[in-house]
Design a protein around this nucleic acid. Sequence first.
DNA 1: GGCACAGCAAGAGCAGTGCTCTCTTTTTTG
DNA 2: CAAAAAAGAGAGCACTGCTCTTGCTGTGCC
Lengths: 246, 246
Amino acid sequence: MTAIRGARARARSDITAAIKDEARRQLAAEGAAKLSLRAVARELGMASSALYRYFPSRDDLLTALILDAYNAIGEAAEAADPTAPGRPADAERDTAVDDVDALIGRWTAVCAAVRSWALAHPHEYALIYGSPVPGYHAPRATAEPAGRVALALIAVVRDAYASGTLQEPAGPLSDAVAGEARALAAELDIELPAPVTAVLVATWAQLFGLISFELFGQFHRVIEDRDAFFAHTVRRLAAGVGLAPP
Amino acid sequence: MTAIRGARARARSDITAAIKDEARRQLAAEGAAKLSLRAVARELGMASSALYRYFPSRDDLLTALILDAYNAIGEAAEAADPTAPGRPADAERDTAVDDVDALIGRWTAVCAAVRSWALAHPHEYALIYGSPVPGYHAPRATAEPAGRVALALIAVVRDAYASGTLQEPAGPLSDAVAGEARALAAELDIELPAPVTAVLVATWAQLFGLISFELFGQFHRVIEDRDAFFAHTVRRLAAGVGLAPP
DNA sequence: GGCACAGCAAGAGCAGTGCTCTCTTTTTTG
DNA sequence: CAAAAAAGAGAGCACTGCTCTTGCTGTGCC
């Protein structure tokens, strides 16, 4: 796989990476709409036509950047919670991290990490959580990386539920929503009561609503101390999903 | 003002409106990135250079469309709640609409109207609540139209508070957030306790997070019955701001 | 009423874009 | 070593936003 498959293959992946790096640089500087294949090629000292050997179209380049962005923000979320899925559950876990404070700590850590990544990479964030690029439909391959942040949030709630510290949300739940929640839980292979799943999905969307509003300027002249406001709201969201008493 | 200020002025506003209409049509068909001044001019049967007499640049056309979109979605929100600000408070209001059910009804009506408008005008929605167009900074004039939806939501909560049916949210509130909330309430000239204001701002952002996720495809293969899910979540949001017991 | 002038339309043109085609060079493979 | 595959380079097409110059026309002033 990663063996030296000849200088050509090595050069190809190197150049592919260089193109993406330069594209990301332009993205950060000017935004997705101003990303120009010709400018990337110019900066890399190659003919613009040569670039089409690596990415058949501008949209394909954008797709690659979108995938990378999903993975980057997902990785940031996972790194913020050492007990996230994919890590082996070690023996000390049950005794050490399952009390309410620790669970809330994990929750806020994941949320804060997502926001930090977004603030550090606003244009890449806009690429994946802003308006979809016109005429572009996300290929199937983006589905899994796109779910990583959600899974990191789910992991915290799942652990809380497993340890019995989760306060199930009250309130009515229509049959339609309950069905949706059950189907989703089955597909993701998680064991959570339907009301919790429903609230979790809503909270997931709301978290990004918060971040998007901050990043896209809707909080301009409305909220100044965004750090404090975000921390406060994330804590309320945690209470909403049942990680703490309201 | 609206008098016949000569055929010239009349023609000017007519043509300006025609340009915006055609631009909106292209926006709906292809999205903001593919909006082309030349194509608009072509469709209107005029030279592309002539269009610059009406809008000095493509960004200026977009700004006009953004303003219109803010006003349209704001109007939709206000129309959904006959007691929204700007309408004279009539005598029957206090006796008729201040019980819990009526308040929740007003709340869900406003939220549903906003979502409906968004679903009906996805590209215009993306223009105002999606990624900001690169290199474009919203002029001061957008601030007021942008706030109309928020004001419609505030009106419901304000009335609930005034009639004493509002359940103030519990939970700690940091000094920073309390200060922000008080400053905002003062600027908007509304009388609400700081915790309520803070929750209201967060809920406002969360509502658009929900709509954006639905519209931008994040709920693809996650939530199918979006109507039911939205209704359920909006009800929870209402409870969150204190319009109903949780 | 005639007239200067501001507002308007049109065309040519510039610099830039995504993308395709052909032609040459380089590297891998049989 | 020769054939084949891959990669680079350049020209070219159709398109974009935008500017400049050249005429035309409706409007208010004398």
